[in-house]
Amino acid sequence: MATYSTNEFKSGLKIMMDGDPYAIVENEFVKPGKGQAFNRVKVRNLKTGRVIERTFKSGDSVEGADVTDVELQYLYNDGEYWHFMDQQSYEQLTADAAAVGDAAKWLKEEAICQVTLWNGVPLSVAAPNFVIVTIVETDPGVRGDTSGGGGKPATLETGAVVRVPLFVQNGEVIKVDTRTGEYVSRVKE
């Protein structure tokens, strides 16, 4: 893998630190009036998501991380691993629970997900921003209530629980924003 000089630092650059892949979030060049210059960076650990601060002497080099983002189709879960497929090469990749994380509750078969690969292995999975899913369990709403005020919990086929308006019924198909976990609308099939 290539090494990067601090001169190449910019947000989004993927580097290795302490054996983990990181993405640079923020890079600030600081220099006292005279003397040693530093690059003060905020970096996100791509395994844990944690953001930390690090400082480098300007001009030093850091090993790059072989991290790429690819679009993969979600196939199925075998109880332990989530299986994805590259739609161009038909190559199949498996992701573990640590990589799938919170995205698991939104994954519906055939969904196209952005998967971050580290050395070719899924490191993290992002659910599509919007998913169309069927409600498998929710209490019957109060007849005539169309205001949507208040709402009620609804369990989706993918396992997530979202708040939906009272008029939305069991078996209906809805659109949900996975970034906020919020109901968007009903979907006519």
Binding site: V30, P32, Q36, F38, T55
Partner: peptide, 13 residues
């Protein structure tokens, strides 16, 4: 000096 610069830029300046 580099240590003084580090502390100056990060904690004092």
């Amino acid at each position: 000096d580099p240590w003084l610069d580090l502390l100056l830029t990060h904690r004092i300046e």
